[in-house]
Write a protein that binds this DNA or RNA. Structure first.
Lengths: 167, 167
DNA sequence: AATGAAAGGCGGTAGGC
DNA sequence: GCCTACCGCCTTTCATT
């Protein structure tokens, strides 16, 4: 297991769901919906934030509107054994990498990359390939999205049945 | 081009960046940081929301804390020509699919899937493979993340230099 | 230990300039 | 875009169970 596990009831789950749906919903409104006072909702929300169940509040944007119109996944293959530690360092050098993970299969890592256009993406790719122990990369450009791409952050429901409070 | 393009200046970009960093930051605080009154910040934020530059405000959660401890990417191969329209329908049938897109390369689509555990993931996979014209799938389980996985939603900076306001 | 009620201060919101 | 004013919300304190 990764982190701290804390008691977690149905009300907490509803609060999380409400804040995922709209992070600016007032505590009073959430309370009215679930039968709690605004005070109680705030205390629970603060506790959830404290326990890193909620990791933050963010505005979701349409990247294309900000000029990021190109998106791709990049498989990375390394020379020899690729220590995730070193890989993480490399990844942090390139702000265009929005997500990076180690995965099963042949590749040592899978990157999600955003760029302004294809030219920019090519430049990012060259930069990545110039890193010390990167042997090769395979890119998959994203053509179109099949989902509204709403809240990628969390799952589309706040909790899987009640797998979360069994600790 | 995809959607409406609207005039967009440096102040807007700073407001977006502030709201990505923390969607609950007060307009007064943002205004103080960028030299604007709270009123002006609110009006700009409302306009950005109106134009779908900002698509919403959401709480980011640690999926594992909510019981979603398994994550994978799934390449989907279809029989014959795969109409994205039909693919989108299929994708919407499975709430565990948090993101789905068509991509370059051999696969017809790439899915991002979250499940509570490996057993659940297998069940999701069977459900997907039972869909009419899905021929085969290839899965890549996510092992570990190399970035804090902060704001996946937007790029890590709110704007690529000034590629965004050239319209 | 958690909730609810009350009070003060701050922020969101609309109207006028 | 700023200033003003009002209303509602956030936040703390305290009493209650």
């Amino acid at each position: 297991m990764n982190s701290k596990h804390v008691a977690f009831d149905d009300l907490d789950r509803k609060i999380v769901a409400a804040l995922i749906a709209n992070a600016r919903t007032s505590f009073a409104e959430i309370g009215a919906a679930i039968g709690l006072s605004a005070t109680a909702v705030k205390r629970r929300a603060d506790r959830l934030r404290e326990n890193d169940v909620i990791t933050g509040y963010t505005a979701t944007v349409r990247p294309a509107a900000l000029g990021w119109s190109t998106e791709a996944f990049v498989e990375v293959y390394c020379d020899g054994a690729a220590p995730p530690r070193r890989l993480a360092e490399v990844v942090r050098n390139h702000p265009e990498i929005t997500s990076a993970m180690t995965v099963t299969g042949g590749a040592d890592a899978l990157l999600h990359v955003r760029a302004t256009d294809v030219g920019h993406f090519e430049e990012v790719l060259e930069r990545i390939r110039a890193e010390p122990f990167i042997r090769k990369t395979i890119s998959y450009m994203v053509l179109s999205h099949l989902l509204p791409d709403s809240a990628e952050a969390g799952a589309r429901e706040a909790a899987p049945d009640d797998a979360a409070n069994l600790h």
